[in-house]
Design a binder for these strands. Sequence first.
DNA 1: GGATGTGAACGACTTCACAGCG
DNA 2: CGCTGTGAAGTCGTTCACATCC
Lengths: 213, 213
Amino acid sequence: MSPFKPDIPHPSVRRLSVYLRQLESLRVQDVRTVSSQTLAASLGLTGAQVRKDLAYLGSLGHPGIGYPTQELVSAIRRALGIDREWLAALAGVGNLARALLRYRGFPQQGFRIVALFDTDPAKIGQQVEGLTIHGVGHIPEVIAATGAELGVLTVPVEGAQAVADMLVAAGIRGVLNFAPTVLRLPASVSLVSVDLAVQLEQLAFLVQMASHD
Amino acid sequence: MSPFKPDIPHPSVRRLSVYLRQLESLRVQDVRTVSSQTLAASLGLTGAQVRKDLAYLGSLGHPGIGYPTQELVSAIRRALGIDREWLAALAGVGNLARALLRYRGFPQQGFRIVALFDTDPAKIGQQVEGLTIHGVGHIPEVIAATGAELGVLTVPVEGAQAVADMLVAAGIRGVLNFAPTVLRLPASVSLVSVDLAVQLEQLAFLVQMASHD
DNA sequence: GGATGTGAACGACTTCACAGCG
DNA sequence: CGCTGTGAAGTCGTTCACATCC
């Protein structure tokens, strides 16, 4: 099915996302070509690191010249699987959900939120950013009707596992979880979790370490 | 200054945060003691991994018994530097900021947001969650007056570096950045960045890989 | 000359396996 | 006997160094 699948290591995948962000801003400035050293310096990395990562995309670089910006952008998008539109459903319509709905980065990268769910009867039926909030009981039909493949979980921690299970049952293929809990999902469903308290704790640790000379 | 600083590796630090979350929920259920195997299984890790991580905290485990929940929680909090209160300032009062202000996990872990900043004249002077929004011009005085040590950046990408520079100039010691850009800060200031588009891209990649058998 | 792509050396983290203790 | 703590082995990722090509 896939033409070739070079099995990109996880750290490289994360960095490719970061390169993409940087390259898109360079492209806007009409920079045609970029060297591994230049790109690396702008991100605080080494040239070798960047070259290793980009080599997973194939041989796009030209010795003595660098990498063509435009082609790199396309190749990274293809490798990451974002050379097409991804439809997502969002469960739990609080402030975080509203922030995500207005976040320009998502549509820019081809992510479109096409369905909203909540358990709160007061919210069900309301419109947010042009989308109607559905009760979680309607997850199956709405997911099927919209064709959403990804689920974004911005519900309180108590309901997270239950709502995740419903999304999975409805055929969702990946979950982005913001609830501070460890979700148990079937292996066939991909999971990325972002725990905001964990991030702040990492920061506190770093600051504390920096103080101890 | 520090009694002992065992230099915990980064992956372990991240997992310690996760253990803490899990242990606190166990403690609520009055579970007095926990084995590395039990804790590991609940998180999808191996017992050896958990033991290695916990060994950085000292010898808290009892062979044949396990680890005392309560003491583990305290030891992890101490190691992470969250055995005290951290004061944070939040710059950029949009939906994401409002979500963070209402997020229960922060006060629970000892993080308190004590100051708000924005550039929008329409927002300056308004109250949100009991805090007054100040103009970014007042960052120096307000940071000094409140004693905030951490800065949370929830501003649009265009203003991120400039606001970060102001926070740094005001004496902030760590920054949690949500803007999708690579911030350049002095080495003395710690930085943790969360790029939401990157997270969704990781998810898309995983789902794509899962489809290719 | 200038910059890529990559084997080889290195370093970091994880897993194994087991001695030792309650 | 169960479970911890930890050297040793193994795996994974990064850095180095250089042959190669325009």
